[in-house]
Computed example of a mutant assay.
Amino acid sequence: MRALALILALALPASAQDDPGQQAGPEFTDSQGAKLRFLDKLTSETGDVELGVGQGAKFGRLVVQLDSCRYPTGNPASDAEAHLTILEETTDTQLFAGWMLASSPALSALDHPRYDVWVLNCVLPEASAEAATDPATDTGEGE
């Protein structure tokens, strides 16, 4: 019994010696929106949509709401994660509620015979500011 106590006493400090500032995973930053892609497998119609957090979009019989989007703080261009709620419009049935990863859409995917939805990326703050000031994006409407 004493040997077991000694082994446990020696094992516990070894795990506590890990760097206390080291986190289990990367730190994430919340985004104000995300870009999603839709596919209708029956008609081969695709579409991209940019949603703000709390906004929804209709694609075919699906209603998709963006609940949250986040990206690794140290590398914003890498893997985005978005929390989506997807409903069947006609029956108001929830088809999906959870996190989708941009780099691994099949890991947590919508299971629907006709439609696919996946995350492309989060909207980055500097990208929004650049688009607003970039003269190439000005369509000339309203002049």
Rank of each mutant, 00 (worst) to 15 (best):
D40K: 03
D48R: 03
N121R: 14
S103L: 10
G60Y: 00
E81A: 09
G142A: 13
L66T: 00
P105V: 08
S15T: 15
D138Q: 11
E89G: 06
L8Y: 12
S68D: 08
T46Q: 10
A16W: 06
G140T: 02
A9K: 11
E141T: 08
T43M: 01
F28L: 15
L120T: 07
G98T: 07
E89D: 15
A129G: 01
Y115S: 07
E45T: 13
L95M: 13
A5K: 12
T91G: 09
Q55K: 13
A102C: 06
V123T: 15
G54P: 04
W118M: 07
D116N: 09
F59K: 01
A24S: 14
A16K: 09
A106E: 15
C69W: 02
R70S: 10
L10M: 11
G60S: 07
D48S: 12
D111R: 13
T46E: 14
A34F: 01
L51E: 03
F59T: 05
V49Y: 11
G56P: 02
P113V: 01
A82F: 00
A77D: 15
C69D: 05
A14L: 12
A106W: 15
L110N: 00
L107V: 11
V119I: 10
V53C: 05
D134G: 02
K41N: 08
D18R: 14
A129C: 05
S78F: 11
L36P: 01
D67T: 01
D48T: 10
A77G: 14
D19R: 03
M100V: 09
P20K: 11
D18E: 13
H83T: 12
L51I: 06
G74Y: 01
L110C: 01
A24Q: 10
D138W: 09
A109S: 14
P13E: 10
E81Q: 13
E130R: 08
G74L: 09
S68R: 09
A3T: 12
W118S: 06
K35Q: 12
K58I: 15
Q94N: 09
L84M: 12
R114D: 06
E143I: 05
M1I: 10
L10S: 11
L10I: 13
T91H: 06
N75H: 08
A9W: 07
E141F: 10
E27V: 15
T139I: 04
H112T: 05
A34K: 02
E27Y: 07
G52W: 02
L39N: 06
D48M: 05
D138P: 00
N75E: 13
G25M: 07
P105C: 07
L36G: 00
G21Y: 13
E141K: 11
R2I: 11
P72E: 06
L120Q: 12
G25H: 12
K35C: 12
E27H: 09
T43N: 08
T133F: 05
S68Y: 00
S103K: 11
D79N: 15
V119T: 07
V117Y: 02
P135K: 08
P125F: 05
A136V: 14
A127P: 01
S44R: 14
E130G: 00
K58L: 09
Q32F: 10
G54D: 06
G47A: 14
T91E: 13
A109L: 04
S15K: 08
L107S: 15
G47Q: 10
K41C: 05
P105R: 01
L101P: 01
A82H: 00
A102Q: 06
Q94Y: 05
